[in-house]
Simulated scan of single mutants.
Amino acid sequence: MKQILIWSDNDLERQITGEILSAGLDEVQILHADGAEQALATLEKGGVDLFVADIPQFSLAKCNVITSAQNLAPDSPILVISSGEQEHVSRNIWRLGVRDYLLKPCRPAWILAAAKALMGKNSGSAPQPEADDSRRKRYLNRLMEQLRGFQYKKCIQTTREYLDLLYRDGDNVEAIRNEVVDFAAGIAELGAPFGQAVQWKLNRCLEQFRVRFDRQGRKYESYLTLETMLDMMFEAMEESNFYEVEGGQKILNFIDRNVRKGLSLDEAAEYASMSSCYFSKFFKKLTGQNYIAYVTDGKIELAKQMLLDTDMPVINISYELSYGETNYFSKAFKRKVGVTPTEFRERNRKAGDQSSGC
């Protein structure tokens, strides 16, 4: 039986948190501490699998308690729950070296997801395979090379490929969450050469993702976070004179980053500082496709992703991809794929059920 220690000066908060954890987790013993000395004494005895620290507002005394807890029980993961402002909380969390925190008000499901993830990470029965760590590094190295080549579309494809492998091969939700967060942290580190402002944005995005345990378990939501982080770096590269990029690649990056927005040929031509007529010929020579076909292909790939990885209604997907009418989107999809969006989703889900033995 695993032990969870809850430290809070507020009796009601401590009781509510304990009830959430005991009701949502199997075989756990909830230990309560209404003061710092009691919490540290319990940690010193050992055997605590998770230390939940309810800290409404950070102070020097509260920070000292967390530091002492880390020294007394270095193997016990810490989850901080706070009602402070995110910037203030995240700054203190970073200084203390605590990885996981939640901001109030937080849903019971978030508390449970956080507890499961932290105790799963700390469990000796299911260590992360070395192969997973090696795979993550391999994909991050590939991303680094593609960033250096200013290849946005390849970065997106690499990110999707990694998530596809992770969610397909993994059946442990907590392990997947941990792996996704580690991959996002790796992407944030790739932003180091772009300056402090970009690094701050990346770290802020990472921290927001780190505390949203509900998002980490959903493949498409994880993808959107990673895509946002990549967009931050490409935007920084485009604005910097340090990175000299061949004009055609820069134009493709702009189009690929704005596929969802229904970027018109005229808008793309304006970005390229060309007339629409000349740009159309230039683009066909550059890619071997006409502009409309290229953008449509990009939209259909995004549509496939949303159909497979979300329960979003087809009408919402069509609006998400800037199609004015759902019927027009369905016809465009069928021309490219051979079936309607609804048929595509149903066929692939049936295939998935059969392969899993359902």
Rank of each mutant, 00 (worst) to 15 (best):
Q3F: 02
L5V: 08
G18R: 01
L31W: 01
L31E: 07
L31R: 09
T42M: 13
G46N: 11
D49F: 08
D49L: 05
A53G: 08
L60V: 13
N64R: 13
N71E: 14
P74A: 04
D75G: 11
D75E: 15
S76R: 03
V80L: 14
V80P: 03
S82V: 09
S82L: 08
E85L: 11
Q86G: 00
H88G: 08
N92R: 02
N92P: 05
Y101F: 15
C106K: 00
M119Q: 11
M119P: 05
N122A: 15
S123Y: 05
A126P: 00
P127Y: 08
P127N: 09
Q128H: 04
E130D: 07
D133H: 03
Y139Q: 02
L140E: 09
L143T: 06
L143F: 06
E145I: 06
L147F: 14
R148N: 13
K154E: 10
K154F: 09
R160T: 04
Y162W: 13
L163A: 00
L165E: 15
G170M: 05
V173W: 06
E174H: 11
E174G: 05
E179M: 08
I187N: 04
E189R: 14
G191K: 00
F194K: 07
F194H: 04
K201G: 04
N203L: 12
C205M: 12
E207N: 10
Q208F: 06
Q216T: 03
Y220C: 11
S222R: 04
Y223K: 09
L224Q: 15
L230G: 06
M232A: 00
N241Q: 13
N241H: 13
E244R: 09
I251T: 01
L252M: 07
F254M: 12
F254Q: 05
A268M: 01
M274K: 10
C277Y: 13
F279P: 01
T287S: 11
Q289K: 11
G298H: 07
G298E: 02
K299P: 01
M306T: 02
L308C: 10
P313I: 14
I315C: 07
I317P: 03
L321Q: 03
G324A: 15
E325C: 13
S330G: 02
R335M: 10
P341R: 09
P341F: 05
T342N: 02
F344K: 04
E346M: 12
A351R: 14
D353V: 09
G357R: 08
